[in-house]
């Protein structure tokens, strides 16, 4: 087991390296460098001082030197300076990162809260009207693009019915730390996370449904039934037990989807998170922020798949490589 985890982490290292090189080269390919922004803010700067400063910052060094320096700074938590906001990228990210993590957590919790009961109902009462309804819902939700669904949710529940706030992450006039502040925060989270969750349930529902349908005719279930174990207990103790851990393992793989989803959700609900920051930065050509965000997202995805693989290998020894 330990061997598998170690090997899996070793496999991550070349991936991390290639990822960082790719992003570094992309950053280099982006027009403008750390001084272009200052040039716009400071008209007194002339070409000569600019060239001197470039030299001093090492922007004329060979690429590999620049790359090593970039990695070194990255490892020290220094993500560079935002040209537009004129402050370290780390400061810019801190608050927004929290918002996005909060949103993603809410989406995950809601997704599981909706999908698990539906999957169980659908598998237990296979071919009933409830099952047909659930399967129909999962087909439709699979085909629905997030941005359209979110827009329609915002239109219906935000504007037409007025049940939810239509933007932001919290009411501005509320003081941080008060009870109302957290309630308002939750209220702002509800509609975006519901929009994200309702259409990402399909994987879990389908997995649970087919697992239960396969398992409920197996011998150990028949034995349990023959012993007179009540039906509810057969499901909770015998059938579902096997299916829950793999479902938990989906979690890590969901991270890619959550990051992509946050870009859409945050832009539609004007929710101040890193997805929104990413779009703003790329439009304002604030490339150091863009680079940092892509790097962080790549890292998050890597760690997510690592966690999922480890959980799955605990559940299913066959996929361990050693």
């Amino acid at each position: 087991m330990v061997k598998f985890i170690l090997r899996r982490i070793m496999m991550m290292i070349p991936q991390l390296f290639v990822l960082s090189v790719l992003i570094f080269l992309l950053a280099k390919a982006m027009p403008g460098d750390a001084l272009t922004g200052q040039l716009a803010n400071n008209p007194k700067m002339d070409a000569q001082t600019l060239a001197e400063m470039r030299e001093k910052l090492g922007l004329n060094d060979p690429l590999y030197v620049q790359y090593t320096r970039w990695i070194k700074n990255l490892l020290h938590g220094d993500l560079g300076l935002s040209y537009v906001h004129q402050q370290p990228v780390t400061d810019l990210l801190a608050g927004r990162m929290w918002n996005t993590i909060l949103l993603s957590l809410c989406i995950l919790v809601l997704t599981y809260a909706i999908a698990v009961p539906l999957g169980v109902i659908s598998g237990r009462w296979q071919d009933s009207w409830a099952d047909k309804l659930i399967v129909g819902y999962s087909y439709v939700s699979f085909a629905t693009p997030l941005f359209i669904f979110a827009l329609i949710m915002l239109f219906l529940f935000g504007f037409k019915l007025g049940w939810f706030p239509t933007g932001g992450s919290v009411d501005i006039q509320l003081e941080e730390g008060t009870f109302d502040y957290y309630i308002s925060k939750l209220n702002h989270l509800l509609l975006p996370s519901l929009s994200g969750a309702l259409i990402s349930t399909v994987g879990i529902i389908q997995y649970l449904r087919s697992e239960i349908i396969d398992t409920k005719v197996k011998d150990f279930v028949r034995t349990a039934r023959a012993k007179g174990v009540p039906e509810a207990k057969i499901y909770s103790r015998h059938i579902l037990r096997n299916s829950f851990l793999p479902i938990a393992a989906f979690l890590g793989y969901e991270i890619t989807g959550l990051i992509g989803g946050s870009v859409f959700l945050e832009s539609i609900f004007s929710y101040p998170g890193i997805g929104q920051l990413f779009l703003q930065s790329i439009m304002q050509r604030d490339y150091s922020v863009v680079t940092a965000l892509v790097m962080i997202s790549g890292l998050a995805t890597l760690i997510g798949t690592l966690l999922s693989d480890i959980i799955l290998s605990v559940v299913d020894p066959r996929i361990r490589i050693d």
Binding site: Q15, L19, L22, L26, M30, T256, I259, G260, V263, F278, L279, I282, V290, L293, V294, S297, G298, T301, L302, T305
Partner: peptide, 11 residues
């Protein structure tokens, strides 16, 4: 497959 697809396409 582990790349943040949407963000990279936008970049």
């Amino acid at each position: 497959l582990i790349l943040p697809f949407l963000m990279l396409v936008i970049v």
